[in-house]
Design a protein around this nucleic acid. Structure first.
Length: 434
RNA sequence: GCCCGGGUGGUGUAGUGGCCCAUCAUACAACCCUGUCACGGUUGUGACGCGGGUUCAAAUCCCGCCUCGGGCGCCA
């Protein structure tokens, strides 16, 4: 089967073997057409009943839809065929038959709802639109990886099974580890920080994170892909620069390499690579701007977190990606450093898409005494994190970084209405299988 | 965690007390059709999430369960 020809590569005059799925069979009486679909597209196979071997015609026109078929024959130019060429078959083999009743219709004549599609993801991904999303997702991940490498960062992989949580706050999935209590990690935060104090200095990781929150929204997952970056000898401004660069690199790569996929998703005309610098609004400016929109019933005051409603009002007002900086210290976790000249303000930042939060980052607290004090202030036991705090006693440089939600990046980039569209097999409150 | 809203053939739907042994599309089966490209035509197959209740009468109203989606909180 290695010598098969992709349907997109079949040229008139070629003698080929194409293999793929029976997309559709149209029997017009004396003539019938079998449409074979593969990764690259579709090609029509013609059966002229009077002129061809009866068994051949029988096999070719009685295949059930979505069966795997292999067709060998001559490729002919044919203006009446959908792609301008068609295969005149010499042999047709049903490699793997499909049951006639399909749980969803890959030809797209009848829509299926998301849960049905996720239950039958394999069949769903025979359709062009979901397939395009994952081709684009792969391009996004490749682009950010290349970008981080160009920024002299080293790719790392940190443990997903851990003894203690990262920030204490969010719910963790407990597991049993050889009889001991353990958890699925909610973030590589602490480990990537340990690495900036190592000889690697500047690192990134693209990997899964696990959060046991029982939220049920179109923008949350219980297993998500986190795109993390952390660097020694930089501050929150430097981290924001890299964050912005990574996001722009992802958009640029998709614009450059995924024209067909964008076309499939109906985004060819509207897709834009952000060119301008992302505005960096301080938290204080942000709440003032939200209040000025008049969209909210109650005015925000300093110290309030931004509600979903507030985020949307601000996003609509700004109209593109932007940062919110200088958050009040108390709303950010202990490992975020406060400003030296104003301890009530942190160096934490969020990067926002007009529709939702994409990134959270900041300069980290690298001073041992302050870090341990931070643990205590948040009611956490520094002893439990000794593996982490200890390393701050042996020369931990100033550093900063961020975490970017991979699925949210793809979701906002493509205007998907549900984050589950951006994961092959999403894990959410209701879904553990497939 | 709190609060809403749903579950009707394989898939997607219509149907708010009798007009429903349930509509339409697609699928599937059979037949007809020599250029389809959502092929077309004829005939047929196939469903009210589960349990209880109200009523002369329940897909439709009520209760419980199961299950799914969404909003908020929180976050990436």
């Amino acid at each position: 089967m290695d010598d098969r020809t992709y349907t997109a590569d079949a040229e008139p005059g070629d003698h080929v073997t194409v293999a793929g799925w029976a997309h559709e069979i149209r029997d017009l009486g004396g003539i019938a057409f079998l449409i074979v679909r593969d990764k690259t597209g579709k090609i029509q196979v013609k059966f002229a009943k009077d002129e061809m071997d009866e068994d051949l015609v029988e096999t070719g026109t009685n295949v059930s839809r979505e069966s795997v078929v292999q067709v060998t024959g001559a490729v002919e130019e044919e203006p009446r065929a959908p792609t301008g060429v068609e295969v005149v078959p010499e042999s047709v083999e049903v490699v793997a038959p499909a049951d006639p009743e399909l749980p969803l219709d890959p030809s797209g004549k009848v829509d299926a709802e998301l849960p049905t599609r996720l239950d039958n993801r394999t069949l769903d991904l025979r359709r062009d639109e979901p397939k395009a999303i994952f081709e684009i997702r792969a391009t996004v991940l490749e682009a950010v990886r290349d970008y981080f490498r160009s920024q002299n960062a080293t790719e790392i992989n940190t443990p997903k099974i851990v003894a203690t949580g990262t920030e204490g706050g969010t719910e963790l999935f407990p597991i049993t580890y050889f009889g001991e209590e353990a958890f699925m990690n909610q973030s590589p935060q602490l480990f990537k920080q340990l690495m900036v104090g190592s000889g690697l200095e500047r690192v990134f990781e693209i990997g899964p994170i696990f959060r046991a929150e029982e939220h049920n929204t179109p923008r949350h997952l219980n297993e998500a892909t986190s795109i993390d970056f952390e660097s020694a000898f930089t501050d929150h401004q430097g981290a924001m620069d890299v964050c912005e660069g990574a996001l722009k690199a992802a958009y640029a790569a998709v614009a450059e390499e995924c024209a067909d996929e964008l076309e499939t998703l109906g985004l060819a005309d509207e897709f834009e690579v952000p060119e301008e610098d992302f505005p960096r609004l301080s938290y204080e400016e942000a709440i003032e701007r939200v209040n000025a929109t008049g969209e909210l019933d109650e005015q925000l005051v300093f110290g309030d977190d931004l509600s979903t409603e507030a985020e949307k009002a601000l996003g609509a007002d700004v109209g593109g990606h932007y940062f919110i900086t200088d958050w009040p210290s108390e709303v950010k976790p202990f490992y975020i450093k406060d400003h030296d000249d104003d301890e009530s303000l942190s160096t934490g930042f969020d990067m926002m898409h007009p529709d939702m939060e994409l990134v959270s980052g900041g300069q980290r607290e690298h001073r041992y005494d302050e870090l341990v004090a931070g643990f205590e202030q948040q009611g956490l036991d520094p002893e439990a994190f000794e593996y982490y705090t200890k390393m701050f006693r042996y020369g931990m440089p100033p550093h900063a970084g961020f975490g970017l939600g991979g699925e949210r990046l793809v979701m906002t980039m493509l205007g998907l209405d549900n984050i589950r569209e951006a994961v092959l097999f999403p894990r959410d409150r209701q879904r553990l299988s497939p």
